[in-house]
Design a binder for these strands. Structure first.
Lengths: 134, 134
DNA sequence: GATAGGGGTTCCAGTCACGGGAAGGTCAAG
DNA sequence: CTTGACCTTCCCGTGACTGGAACCCCTATC
């Protein structure tokens, strides 16, 4: 398979596939003309990577997961641990975003949104940070 | 004020303040020795930027907000519009993360997490993408 | 054999919002 | 005069790609 076909079947852009080769996630052999010659196993790895990335795993997580994917004597506990750590990161991010969301939506609701300059959003942003002297 | 004091009072790292100068968000004059000489107004701008960034606004949003901050004949509607667009982006991100969270937590729950290789997480990741022929 | 097009290849630069660290100038205190 | 804390600029690295230039390969057509 050339890169175009693999791109189509894995759902990844050709650029991304080349990048994954560069960082050592896949290592397709080359044809005599220099073209990458992807095997079915490469396609499966790339599809795996695409799915893992879609779930938000970092590239380094993906590298670890791919190693476990290839390791038929793996322990599912290892997979689960990686997934759980990632879930924790996601929860942190969600919490952070929801905090922003809370503040923002309050401010937006309080803002008249008319042609006058007075604006609770501006007032909030303009507040100097607390130096907490107590 | 030198950069150290402004950093402390604004809560921003000196590095970040220099970066904000570089991209034109603040323009403190210089002392004879080449040191940046921040005015109170610069401090206020920087504190404003810090707060806006903490709410997740992009630098370009910040640039626009700062212009409105300085514009005493602004319309609060303009502020509100920027904030609302940002809120929409936050909501998108939250939705995306919650989708990941949903899939991941299901998979994690279904995974035995023992020393056997069988693992629903791996099975999910290994699925080839649908080519949707119908 | 020339040409057009649709593959493929490499390499370089840019993204976003900084952070780290080197190499060097400045200032107040002892 | 030295120490040490501050300040300066400059350049590289981050994560995970994306865009584009310049070039090669292969097939089909005239």
């Amino acid at each position: 398979m050339n890169i175009g076909e693999v791109a189509q079947r894995s759902g990844l852009p050709a650029k991304t596939i080349r990048y994954y080769e560069e960082i050592g996630l896949v290592a397709p052999p080359r044809d005599a003309n220099g073209y990458r010659a992807f095997r079915e196993s490469d396609l499966h790895k790339l599809a795996f990577l695409g799915r893992a990335r879609a779930l938000g795993f970092t590239i380094e997580d993906c590298r670890a997961l791919l190693a476990l994917y290839e390791d038929h004597s793996r322990a599912s506990a290892d997979v689960k641990r990686i997934a759980r750590l990632h879930l924790d990161r996601i929860d942190e991010k969600i919490t952070e975003l929801q905090a922003m969301r809370g503040t923002l939506s309050q401010l937006i609701e309080a803002c008249a949104g008319d042609n006058r300059p007075d604006c609770p959003i501006m007032e909030d942003l303009a507040a100097l940070p607390d130096h907490g002297s107590g």
